[in-house]
Design a protein around this nucleic acid. Structure first.
Lengths: 241, 241
DNA sequence: CGGAGTTTTGAAGGACGTCAACATCTGTGG
DNA sequence: CCACAGATGTTGACGTCCTTCAAAACTCCG
């Protein structure tokens, strides 16, 4: 892992694959790398807490973050997961507001970190970065609107199918048995993503497993028949014979 | 109404009250007014449809817009309402994506409209506008996250209370009987905002009305005891004796 | 092997959706 | 002014999806 984090490899990896930096000239990339600070957050660690003043902005180099909110009553919901080449903290830093959520690492995570002042130094000469940040925020807002619609109109089973579908796109890894979600995720986590209980998630996954759609495991989900999951998510007529 | 829309009145109204233009120098405001086009959308009319390419950006001068999404199955959810001095279409125009939702006028609505090319002409010399747009989008994203959390963790009654609370802040008007939501809103609308049915909304409002918390009416809601509504929304111990 | 965390499964109950019927209001045209 | 249609709101009865409560099995790790 460390080998991948030397300067040249970093530069190659960032060039053209990071949405935040797309369209940025070489000089800008150099500047961004120079201003950013490499940082490690161990599994289970917290990058920032909900309500804290937002003073840093993170680009994930490797690992996985869970972004969640806690309610005053002590309940917890998961807003999204973030993986390599995605950014965290942009809403708060750009808007000048406290972090609206808490980011914790679900695996060892390496980030490139900029303080708020550094961000200003970057976006001033390279406004394309600000435009990219806006595009990213727009995409997330659109996604949140979709999820709100799902929460309001769909039953639990479809919501779980949709959540898994997003995880497949974002963190799917091909294995002989099917597509595996490439980080540890529990039934409780899925419940907090879909607004239900771990019991219902467990029952649903068990039912799917008996149909051969998924394979379960401890903090593990493998989708054996992705098309069936899509059929459930889109509420298509059952394809089973 | 038309009287309020002449150039000088417009200028006075926009100065310092429109989030999008805060911090903008006089010259920029002049430029913005010159580039924008005044437009009227009659009650029930549609400003833009979900899925259309985003080619315009709207600042509401007067009236009220409903922003909603339709599901493939024909269901409808309301994402938010927008009132005077708020902007519509920013996510799509800034992100270069199709409009993610549909905006319809719930009353006669007047807007100042900029095409996408005009927006570029404005933000280039006045990047503060882009910063403001980003702040606005950040605020909306934060709000959507809160609402998603509500949908996942709260019962229907609390969600309705929260929705009404937001409407009070956004469109509340003092009357002798209490605070009235200042545009026509039906039980069905409230149901589509909170992910429930008009029946449950009706039952809930009836119960509140019998406690004197609200006053109902056709497409009308008046909050007689706002503090009681807050108590319900925050799930505080009942204040009734 | 013990213990904590995770997952599974069963049973019971409730919140809320669905179905149904009726009441009320608004606008239109005769 | 009245009749009528259509939209909106109210209320009751019933069903069910899902939560809650409960207990046990499994897995990982020291």
């Amino acid at each position: 892992m460390d080998a991948a984090l030397n300067h040249d490899a970093l530069r190659a990896a960032l060039s053209g694959q990071v949405g935040l930096f797309s369209g940025l000239p070489e000089a800008g990339l150099t500047r961004a790398l120079a201003l950013g600070q490499r940082q490690k957050c161990g599994k289970g660690g917290t990058l920032f807490h909900q309500g804290e003043p937002a003073d840093a902005f993170y680009l994930i180099l490797a690992g996985r973050l869970q972004v969640g909110q806690a309610t005053p009553e002590g309940q917890h919901v998961i807003i999204r997961y973030l993986g390599p080449r995605e950014i965290a903290g942009c809403v708060a830093v750009c808007g000048g507001i406290p972090y609206p959520a808490t980011a914790t690492a679900v695996e060892d995570t390496w980030t490139l970190t900029w303080s708020r002042t550094r961000i200003a130094e970057l976006t001033e000469p390279y406004p394309v970065i600000a435009m990219n940040a806006m595009r990213i925020m727009g995409g997330r807002l659109t996604e949140m609107q979709q999820r709100l619609r799902e929460m309001q109109t769909e039953r639990v089973e479809r919501r779980i199918a949709h959540a898994l579908g997003r995880l497949v796109v974002q963190a799917g890894r091909r294995t002989p048995e099917g597509i595996e979600i490439d980080f540890p995720i529990s039934r409780q986590d899925l419940a907090e993503m879909t607004g239900t209980t771990l019991h219902t998630v467990s029952r649903t996954l068990s039912a799917w497993e008996s149909q051969g759609i998924v394979l379960g495991g401890r903090q593990k989900v493998v989708i054996a028949q992705p098309h069936m999951l899509v059929a459930i998510a889109e509420d298509l007529p059952d394809e089973a014979g």
